[in-house]
Simulated assay, not measured.
Amino acid sequence: MIKEFKAFISRGSVVDLAVGVIIGSAFTSIVKSLVSYMINPLIGLFVGGINFSDWVFKINDATFKVGSFINAVINFIIIAFVIFLMVKLINKFRKTETKEPTNTEKYLKDIRDMMKKNDEY
């Protein structure tokens, strides 16, 4: 059983997943800071510092914090948009790999070209 666990944990996909989760949590804190300390105050300048968190309604003893939910939805949209922009920027600078065609692909291309040549006559 220990050998199986060692084989499982040594797989590249498990290690990649662990690294992805760790980097993802670090990236989350960066994005939250960006949104909380830079973007939200900027938006507050344009909307007059509206704070929805005080919006509540009550039915008997139940309190529904609608404003907090609205704030969470707005923050989610802002965070999602910031992540979209960051990924787009990263992809812009990432080198695109040009893959060398395999022998099979070269052979099939030659066959295609020969068939096109035969169709012309």
Score class of each variant (00 low, 15 high):
S10F: 06
T102I: 03
K32F: 06
M1V: 04
S36V: 00
R11N: 11
I2T: 08
G48C: 01
D16Q: 13
T96K: 12
G12W: 02
I74G: 12
L89P: 03
W55M: 03
I22A: 09
T102Y: 02
F76N: 13
F57G: 03
I83K: 14
F52S: 09
G48M: 02
M114C: 09
Y121P: 15
T104F: 08
T104Y: 05
V47N: 14
I39Q: 07
D119W: 12
Y121A: 15
S53D: 13
F52V: 01
D113K: 15
T28Q: 11
I74W: 08
F76R: 15
N40S: 08
F5L: 14
G67M: 01
I9D: 08
S10D: 05
V87A: 13
D110K: 13
F69P: 14
E100V: 00
D16A: 10
N60K: 07
S36K: 15
E105K: 06
V82D: 02
T104W: 09
G49I: 01
S10C: 00
F64D: 05
I111W: 10
K88A: 11
K99N: 07
M115E: 10
V15N: 07
N75L: 00
E120P: 09
A26K: 13
N91W: 08
S33E: 04
N75V: 01
V82W: 07
V73S: 12
D119S: 12
V14I: 15
I77L: 14
I23Q: 14
R94C: 08
M115S: 15
K92F: 12
L108Y: 00
N40M: 11
D16M: 11
V19C: 05
L34Q: 03
G67K: 01
N40Y: 05
V14G: 07
T104G: 00
K116T: 03
K88W: 15
N103E: 11
T96N: 12
I70N: 00
S10L: 06
V15Y: 04
A62I: 01
F46T: 08
L45I: 03
F84P: 06
F27P: 02
V82P: 13
L89M: 11
S68G: 12
N91G: 13
P101E: 02
F81V: 05
I23M: 09
E4F: 00
L85M: 12
V82N: 06
I78C: 08
T104C: 00
T28C: 06
N71A: 07
G44C: 02
D16L: 11
M1E: 13
K65W: 07
L17A: 10
K92S: 09
V47R: 03
Y121G: 08
L34N: 06
A7V: 00
G12E: 10
S33K: 13
V82Y: 05
T28P: 05
R94Q: 13
V87P: 05
D16T: 06
S10Q: 02
D54E: 15
A18Y: 10
V56N: 12
N75C: 01
M114F: 14
L108E: 07
N51C: 01
S53N: 02
K3S: 07
F52H: 02
S68I: 09
V56S: 14
P101H: 06
N40V: 09
T96R: 02
F52I: 03
K95C: 01
G48N: 12
T98H: 04
I39E: 04
F84M: 02
A7R: 04
N118R: 07
I50K: 06
M38V: 15
K117F: 03
K95Q: 12
I70D: 03
